[in-house]
């Protein structure tokens, strides 16, 4: 069986090319870890100064800040200029007034949160109980990393398979083995299927490694089913692979494969779910519907955060499958350029 021969050959090449194997397996873990280090930090505790604040407020502020001291306003401003202070709170007239350093939005919101909490103590008369908060999905401990994690998993699977698949199919052409293969009785679909299956084997391993690492080592929020998650990542990988081999026929060399990254990959990162698209322009939302990663990321998020099953995200799965199928057929068509048969 010729398909099996192609699969076997790709597996052997991978076995020899340890570095590419590492790029596929280890590099995503490394980058995921970096993202985790950046996003999984604790809430920021601001450095604040105050003057003439009531004692209960000061006590509450003290709990929530890493530094709290009484300053004159001028002193505080100087400290802010030196980057030593994030905010200064005082009472002017009857209203509490805050001066923010203001250059870092995340710090600003941290300060606001702290101040609002503390000022509550002034209104002790109002006897409304704090509301109890329950979560339909997720939990109070969920942070940014947990939310974008599923998208990142999808993205890294997509990215690394795209690069490797694209380059290795390109090499097939530039080193002349494609022409040689097409001079044999191999059918075009057999060649493409062999490629998808051969790489598919490794994308399964890659998916297991990335997903397991994210969940068990980086402790990404996950209430879905591990195996069902793999179905999505593998489907996503195969989409990436078939897209990469397709695009590689429009590249003359490895460098030109790299040129597809800003065009094909980067927009998908931005518009496929890392950021909330609902606030963006309509045309971006429409554009994102043409991106495979949108559906992969959506399905992964539904599964990991909301505990959805395959049948809950069947729409996304079907679309991904559709993408893969279309790319697959186009691959077979493009090979016609080399051999009409």
């Amino acid at each position: 069986m010729r398909v099996a021969a192609v699969v076997k050959r790709i597996a052997k090449q991978f076995k020899r090319d340890r570095r590419s194997l590492a790029l596929m397996m280890i590099a995503p873990l490394f980058v995921l870890t970096l993202v985790w280090l950046v996003l999984d930090g604790d809430d920021y505790e601001p450095k604040m100064g105050y003057s003439e604040m009531p004692q209960p407020v000061i006590e509450l502020l003290d709990e929530e800040t890493q530094h709290l001291e009484q300053y004159k306003k001028e002193e505080a401003i100087d400290l802010m200029k030196d980057g030593e202070l994030d905010a200064f709170i005082s009472i002017e007239g009857m209203t509490p007034t805050t001066l923010l350093e203001g250059s870092e939005p995340s710090v600003n919101s941290a300060v606001m949160r702290v101040i609002q909490e503390s000022l509550k103590s002034l209104k002790t008369n109002t006897q409304i109980e704090e509301p109890t908060i329950n979560y339909l999905y997720g939990s109070g401990d969920m942070n940014l990393f947990d939310r974008v994690g599923p998208v990142l998993i999808g993205f890294f699977v997509f990215f690394f398979v795209f690069i490797l698949g694209g380059i290795s199919f390109l090499r097939e052409r530039t080193q002349g083995t494609l022409a040689k293969l097409l001079s044999t009785p191999i059918k075009r679909w057999e060649l493409v299927t062999g490629y998808v299956a051969g790489f598919g084997l490794f994308t399964i391993i890659q998916s297991v490694v990335i997903v397991a690492f994210s969940i068990y080592v980086l402790d990404m929020y996950m209430v879905g089913n591990f195996v069902e998650l793999l179905v999505v990542t593998i489907l996503l990988a195969i989409t990436a692979l078939s897209l990469a081999t397709l695009l590689s026929s429009f590249a003359k060399n490895e460098f030109q494969i790299m040129q597809f990254i800003p065009i094909v990959i980067i927009p998908q990162v931005f518009f496929a779910g890392i950021f909330n698209l609902e606030t963006l322009d309509r045309w971006i939302q429409i554009l994102s519907q043409f991106m495979p990663l949108t559906y992969g990321a959506e399905a992964l998020q539904q599964m990991m955060i909301k505990g959805a099953h395959i049948y809950d995200v069947w729409f996304e799965i079907m679309i991904l499958f559709g993408f893969a199928l279309v790319f697959f057929i186009l691959n077979i068509r493009v090979l016609k350029k080399h051999r009409s048969l």
Binding site: R9, K12, Q175, G176, T177, A179, S183, T184, P185
Partner: peptide, 18 residues
């Protein structure tokens, strides 16, 4: 015809790693 033809291209058409 492809079954009865042996073709050797100008480029070596070999898999280097293998």
């Amino acid at each position: 015809l492809m079954n009865i033809t042996g073709y050797m291209a100008q480029s070596d058409a070999l898999y280097q790693e293998l």
